[in-house]
């Protein structure tokens, strides 16, 4: 028995040691906590990166279950890109279980994509959990705003260039090309959304604030009573009354939210429900960052027409 166990352990050790250098020799192995950050890292890193994401696009990134399979991904990573602002705090548990010193907090293989951004909804007074599962350092859903992409990609570029300084020029070129494409798309999106400036919408979870602000729309309320807390019947009654009073015609929901409930509210308030792409790949046809924003702009515009 003891000998058999020893043999198994020895085999694992040898296999592990042999497998140490498996993988693309020149590519930076990057793991991003969300698919948005994966997509943005890919556009900057180009052929020099191999990027994987921990959360799927249609998963709620607030509360991801820490599976050992995530640790396997981080175990092999040279670089970990996190959203920060306490959206993906679960990533710390993944890092602790991955035994990868390259990506522990403070290491050079860490990129906090929120670094240097001016964050919306930073609490200025006391907050506690009577307000629900609040984000105490501000709203973390900045990647949904295409206007934030220049700053996010700048953070990513810095991180990649730290590991491969020789390729900085290439990364900068990739980023510039992406921002050029984003510029063109932004002009299109701005035109599409221009007729709806000032329109009021209801959201399921308060994650569309940056996106709405970018295009001049107003968030009039949330289906959730408080962040992370399911609505009570009283809240829904008030919400429906508010939607009728203010002639609000659109509810934005995420793929992981209770769409049937939103449909019921919409039906009572004579409004529509639009499923938004809460991340790259969250819904069909959103496989790139620009595709995702494109989808969301079209979805909102159609919903408000």
């Amino acid at each position: 028995m003891r000998t058999a166990v020893m043999h198994v352990l020895l085999a694992l050790v040898v296999t592990g040691l042999l497998a140490r250098d498996v993988g693309g020799a020149d590519k930076i192995r990057v793991v991003a906590t969300t698919t948005d950050l994966k997509a943005l890292t890919e556009v900057v890193g180009g052929d020099f990166v191999d990027v994987d994401a921990l959360a799927r696009g249609n998963q709620n990134p607030h509360d991801l279950e820490v599976r050992p399979s995530l640790m396997v991904k981080v175990r092999r990573a040279d670089l970990l890109v996190t959203n920060g602002l306490e959206l993906d705090q679960w990533a710390e548990v993944v890092v602790q279980g991955s035994n990868n010193a390259k990506v522990i907090p403070g290491a050079s293989g860490r990129i906090d994509a929120s670094r240097g951004l001016l964050v919306l909804e930073v609490p200025t007074t006391h907050v506690d959990r009577s307000m629900g599962d609040v984000h105490p350092v501000g709203n973390p859903h900045y990647t949904l705003d295409p206007g934030m992409a220049p700053a996010i990609t700048a953070n990513i570029l810095d991180g990649l260039a730290r590991l491969q300084p020789a390729n900085r020029a290439t990364f900068e070129q990739n980023r510039k090309a992406f921002l050029g494409r984003l510029d063109e798309a932004m002009a299109r999106w701005t035109t599409t959304m221009a007729p709806f400036k000032g329109a009021r919408v209801i959201v399921d979870h308060n994650m569309w604030l940056y996106f709405l602000t970018r295009f001049g729309l107003l968030q009039a309320g949330t289906v959730e009573e408080r962040p992370g807390i399911p609505p009570t019947p009283g809240h829904l009654t008030r919400l429906i009354a508010q939607m009728k009073d203010e002639h609000i015609k659109l509810i934005l929901v995420e793929p992981w939210s209770d769409q049937k409930l939103a449909e019921r509210v919409a039906q009572d308030a004579d409004a529509k429900v639009t499923v938004m792409a809460s991340g790259v790949g969250a819904v069909k046809g959103t496989d790139s960052y620009i595709d995702m924003v494109d989808y969301n702009v079209r979805a909102v515009a159609q919903g408000l027409r």
């Binding site: 050790v13 040691l17 399979s69 175990r75 092999r76 035994n99 990868n100």
Partner: peptide
């Protein structure tokens, strides 16, 4: 030790 294997193993 988490060996760099394609699947997760922790020793």
């Amino acid at each position: 030790w988490v060996p760099p294997l394609p699947f997760y193993v922790e020793l």
